[in-house]
């Protein structure tokens, strides 16, 4: 395991500290564990809280700031945070307008956020939640726990965050969050695994000509393994499943090409080159494209493609001003 770290037991703490020290104009850390909130609390708006295991940087702390989240809760690497951490985050940012939790669909995340929510409600705080589940690699059925929440979650942060910043009420903010969840689909693939620092060994190993398809964001193996393909072929494989899941025909979309952590931007751009061509050919108009690292899996070498089907409201909120360490929009004017 070759990493720039000091001690596997201090990874999460030093990482959060390093993030907060880098961005004191945006972020403040609570004393009770790895909870990051806006440097200046914003009153009279619905507060957005998200989080999950560490290892997804810049998610989730990188999206705390004007126009996005109010707090991010970080667990141990790939491990959901605990209910009391979530409760502390909610308590800190809660306003009379209420709090919305944005939770990714994993058994652990759902249970811990549920318990945190219950604790906050017992204190009389108005809290609701949405559960993201954009990963089409996992079939949604009665016999599974449903699709996972992956990179598409960041669109929920951006769009619900923008509406909350405008002062909308909790039911409206929740409604737009659910609209994004209904309209975003993601799928990913990887050619090299990542290593949980405290585990010391990669979650799986891959031969020179193998790749994992349908990966999650916790370093786990994908839904299946197959022969490694070119960038374009891999993108086709993922796009096919995304486009088969909801009807994007004739619509306008936001595209996210999300790097898993060790995939260079060069490769992500090459992938987008093909994704843009395929969408054009299919008559799906690209409104905005985001290429970069948004929801990573430490140093996994892989990527995911997310497509969000847009309407006018989502378009406007996507372009609304955001000022966070990892997502900034100038706002005010619309490009192009």
């Amino acid at each position: 395991m070759k990493k720039f770290i000091n001690d596997v037991d201090l990874v999460e703490e030093q990482m959060i500290q390093g993030m907060v020290k880098a961005y004191p104009q945006y972020l403040k850390k609570l004393d009770c564990g790895n909870v990051v909130v806006r440097a200046a609390k914003k009153e009279r708006k619905v507060a957005l809280v998200s989080g999950g295991g560490s290892g997804h940087e810049p998610a989730h702390g990188g999206f705390v700031g004007e126009g996005m989240l109010d707090a991010a809760v970080a667990g141990a690497v790939f491990t959901s945070p605990t209910p009391d951490q979530i409760y502390e985050a909610v308590k800190e940012v809660a306003t009379e307008a209420g709090v919305l939790l944005i939770v990714k669909n994993y058994t652990g995340d759902v249970m811990n956020f549920e318990m945190g929510e219950e604790m906050a409600q017992m204190e009389g705080i108005r809290v609701d939640h949405v559960i993201t589940n954009d990963d089409v690699a996992v079939k949604d059925s009665l016999y599974t726990v449903g699709r996972r929440g992956v990179a598409g979650t960041v669109f929920v942060h951006k769009i619900a965050g923008a509406l909350a910043e405008q002062g909308a009420a909790l039911p409206e903010v929740k409604a737009v969050a659910l609209k994004v969840i209904d309209n975003v689909r993601t799928m990913g693939a990887a050619i090299a695994p990542c290593t949980v620092p405290a585990a010391g060994n990669p979650g799986f190993t891959l031969g020179e000509n193998e790749m994992e398809v349908g990966i999650g964001i916790h370093g786990e193996p994908g839904t299946h393994r197959e022969e490694r393909k070119t960038a374009d072929e891999t993108a086709d494989l993922l796009l096919d499943q995304i486009l088969a899941d909801i009807d994007y025909a004739g619509s306008e979309v936001a595209v996210m090409i999300n790097g898993a952590g060790a995939t260079p931007l060069m490769e992500l751009y090459i992938i987008n080159n093909h994704v843009a061509d395929v969408l054009k050919e299919k008559g799906i108009r690209v409104y905005r494209t985001y290429v970069g690292e948004y929801m990573t899996s430490i140093e996994m070498q892989g990527f995911s493609i997310s497509l969000l089907k847009l309407d006018e409201q989502m378009k406007e909120l996507l372009d609304a001003k955001a000022d966070t360490p990892a997502w900034k929009e100038i706002g005010g004017k619309t490009h192009g």
Binding site: G75, A76, T79, S80, G108, E114
Partner: peptide, 8 residues
């Protein structure tokens, strides 16, 4: 302190 699925 545990988090994840096994904590709750």
């Amino acid at each position: 302190t545990v988090g994840g699925a096994s904590g709750p």
